[in-house]
Write a protein that binds this DNA or RNA. Structure first.
Length: 728
DNA sequence: CAGTGAGCGAGCTTCCGCTTGACTT
């Protein structure tokens, strides 16, 4: 039979974009299809873990995935041979296992093998196909244990919150620890007391060039002080008040400013490794102001492909990865590219990078698929956001294989009496990897120093005293919470962005000018969980779980026994809390100043499924509800109120419109504040940008009023300056 | 960059981790 001589193979991967690429590499004889993630999982509606019988999970076909599974089954039947090529990690192994079961169920005679590869290159794929193996049951068991544990924790804790606080709330191994971090940071922020301190700079003149030196130390260094004695010299942290700095300036009044030391130091700056998911999210947040969610969705677009000419080209490798590894082929290509484009910045040996200890290393680092597609050359085919994200991925990758940069710092000590001032200037003497950076380039410090010699006397132009306040710990941002979660091994590349989103959707956390701030509800949930379930909230809970999974995976240890050990005390605790803890339902409702226009009673601020709203305290006799008025509509004669609105049924971006819509079409995408503009009387909105940070601006397009945090500080300083007079 | 637009309450919710689209309760 001729047909049998040409066997056909179905190869199954997780991602459709990956399937397309691999099909091209393998050619005829192979059909490549995608499972699109897990096909088999626990049902959503029930806990579905049989605690009486070895915690056996009850798996079903994931809702919406039945068609995919059917297609795979029928194609497999036609082909006769199947290669399971889901990702080479714990979840991937489980996907392969579930696929194998489902395919065999339909067609017991199928020949099914498992293959693994860690990069999508022709050689890696062909090599994997040539060496098929079987499913690693230890990995499958480890995934099962992880899945069961997360289900037990999430589906037992969440109902406690429904019962005690409010319906629809949630808790889980990952989200609750993230909430804890954010709440505890907020406590630190609140308890921090800013302390005043002053710095003194002096503007000096040499010939025609001015420069500014900073006070480093006041008072002669004593021998005892150097040996660790207590009576050391004062430094800038000892300048606590205006009086301190004035004393200092008085002492310096008749002193001569002499150059006493000049030092030159060279520093070598190593390039950074190519992006992992977490690093990409952090850098995109810091450099481009993207949320983690936005970064991932734009990265997905770049991965799936962009129309360039007649072709659709996947511009980057897979964007959910914990690895900094790159394929040998990519390395070869980037070295060739660097040699041509940046000759002199190509190291003799490739740079290598180590990885985080929790890395599963199933995919390469995030890198451009074709390094010769420079950001400049593809710019015309990309949206602004795609272009910027692609640029940082390309720059980080290319620079990671270039030589170090060298900088030279000249540091000049200037002494006046017993006070030491210092000025330094850094310049790049070898660009190295920085030659490839544009969007990621660090800003030059810029200031140039005139040529100076030791012993030289400089002219004092004026003193520049400055008041400061110590700043407390910074609130978490998308960038820093992702960094922390990754460091602690909590969550995975595919979940960092959604963990932040879930906290925001549940109204546990708000994102205000990029900062993550717990809401009253968030703090309440944190308090409840930390008091009742401290072990689950422990940052090391996940670490404990991981080491258990490691033992299941590498030593074949029994996962059921380990889950049982956890479950007994946990379930008891859940029941105890459920019986003893008093319900605080409704305590989140806040009385307000608003009066019900239907019955005259007071209105209450409540949290509903779609956010906060006002409800009449006369419920159920009076069922009046309305949105919370945030400001008065500025349109002349309108008289409406500005309220928060959302497109797409609760999801989608919040915006702010007039209650008189559609008669009044006033709209703003910036959140109104409670203040009105002192210039024109319209309301002020919250804005933020890199330069100013968070600030308030007038919503009136014809009004230029804005109010920054610096304005407040300056106002204080200004008041002081007026009462003291000038200082030169 | 422009453009974005219901009415909800105290019953049926929730986890983490894979992966992309999107008529349905």
């Amino acid at each position: 039979m001729m047909a049998e001589k040409k066997p056909h193979t179905l190869l199954i991967v997780e991602s459709p974009a990956k399937a397309k690429t691999i099909e091209k590499y393998l050619g005829p004889g192979y059909t490549v299809m995608a499972s699109i993630g897990h096909l088999i999982d626990l049902p959503k509606s029930r806990i579905a873990i049989d605690v009486e019988h070895n915690f056996e999970p009850e798996y079903i076909t994931v809702r919406g995935k039945a068609k995919i599974l059917k297609d795979l089954q029928s194609t497999a039947k036609k082909a006769g041979h199947v290669l399971l090529a889901s990702d080479n990690d714990r979840e991937g192994e489980a996907i392969s296992y579930h696929l194998q079961n489902a395919l065999l169920k339909k067609n017991p005679k199928l020949e099914i093998k498992r293959i693994v590869f860690n990069e999508i290159t022709p050689t890696a794929i062909r090599d994997a196909v040539a060496h098929p193996g079987t499913i690693a049951m230890e990995k499958v068991n480890a995934q099962k244990a992880r899945r069961v544990l997360d289900r037990i924790v999430g589906y037992n804790l969440s109902p406690v919150l429904w019962e005690k606080v409010k319906n629809g709330l949630s808790a889980g191994r990952v989200q609750s620890v993230a909430l804890r971090l954010i709440c505890e940071r907020e406590k630190e922020v609140e308890s921090f007391i800013p302390e005043e301190y002053w710095t003194l700079a002096v503007e000096l003149l040499k010939g025609k060039s001015h420069f500014t030196a900073q006070m480093i130390r006041a008072g002669v260094k004593k021998a005892e002080a150097e040996a660790g004695g207590e009576d050391g010299p004062a430094d800038r942290s000892d300048m606590k008040s205006r009086a301190d700095i004035q004393n200092l300036m008085q002492r310096l009044e008749n002193e001569v400013f002499t150059v006493t030391d000049i030092r030159e130091t060279e520093k070598s700056l190593r390039p950074r490794p190519p992006f992992t998911t977490s690093q990409l999210q952090q850098t995109a947040a810091n450099r481009l102001g993207f949320t983690s969610r936005k970064t991932m969705s734009i990265a997905q677009q770049l991965y799936e492909g962009v129309a360039i000419g007649a072709n659709r080209i996947g511009l980057i490798t897979y964007m959910r990865t914990d690895s900094t590894r790159i394929s040998a082929l990519a390395l070869e290509e980037v070295r060739k590219f660097i040699g041509e484009r940046y000759p002199g910045s190509l190291p003799a040996e490739p740079n290598s990078y180590s990885m985080g200890k929790s890395a599963q290393d199933a995919h390469e680092a995030i890198r451009p698929t074709i390094v010769t597609y420079t950001p400049e050359s593809v710019k015309a085919h990309l949206t602004k956001d795609q272009e910027r994200l692609y640029a940082i991925i390309w720059e980080r990758f290319v620079s990671s294989q270039m030589t170090s940069a060298k900088t030279q710092t000249v540091s000049v000590d200037i002494t006046a009496g017993d006070v030491l001032f210092r000025v330094s200037s850094t310049r790049t003497i070898e660009k190295g990897f920085q030659a490839a950076l544009d969007v990621l380039a660090s800003k030059e410090s810029g200031k140039k120093l005139p040529a100076l010699k030791v012993g030289e006397i400089l002219t004092r132009e004026k003193f520049l005293p400055e008041q400061h306040f110590t700043t407390g710990p910074a609130r978490y941002t998308d960038a820093t919470i992702v960094k922390t979660l990754e460091e602690k091994g909590i969550g995975r590349p595919s979940t960092y962005a959604s963990t932040i989103s879930v906290l925001i959707e549940r109204y546990y956390v708000e994102r205000r000018s990029r900062q993550l701030i717990p809401t009253q509800l968030g703090r309440t949930i944190y308090d409840l969980l930390i008091n009742s379930f401290p072990d689950i909230l422990d940052v090391n809970f996940t670490a404990g779980m991981e080491s258990m999974l490691d033992r299941v995976e590498s030593e074949g240890e029994d996962w059921v026994g380990m889950i049982r050990l956890f479950y007994g005390p946990f379930k008891q605790k859940v029941e105890h809390v459920s019986e003893t803890l008093q319900s605080i339902k409704g305590v989140m409702d806040e009385p307000t100043e608003f009066v019900c226009e239907k019955c005259g009673r007071q209105m209450i601020k409540k949290l509903g499924r779609f956010g906060f709203f006002l409800a009449c305290s006369g419920f159920p006799e009076c069922r009046n509800t309305k949105s919370i008025p945030l400001a008065d509509c500025p349109k002349p004669g309108c008289g409406g109120k500005i309220v928060a609105r959302r497109k797409q049924k609760g999801r989608g971006k919040e915006f702010y419109g007039c209650t008189n819509y559609p008669e009044c079409d006033f709209i703003s995408h910036f959140k109104p504040t409670s203040s009105t503009c002192p210039k024109c009387g319209w309301f002020l909105v919250e804005k933020s940008d890199k330069k100013r940070g968070a600030y308030k601006a007038c919503i009136n397009k014809d009004c230029d009023y804005l109010h920054t945090a610096a304005d407040d500080e300056e106002a204080v300083e200004e008041a002081g300056r007026k009462s003291e007079g000038a200082w030169t």
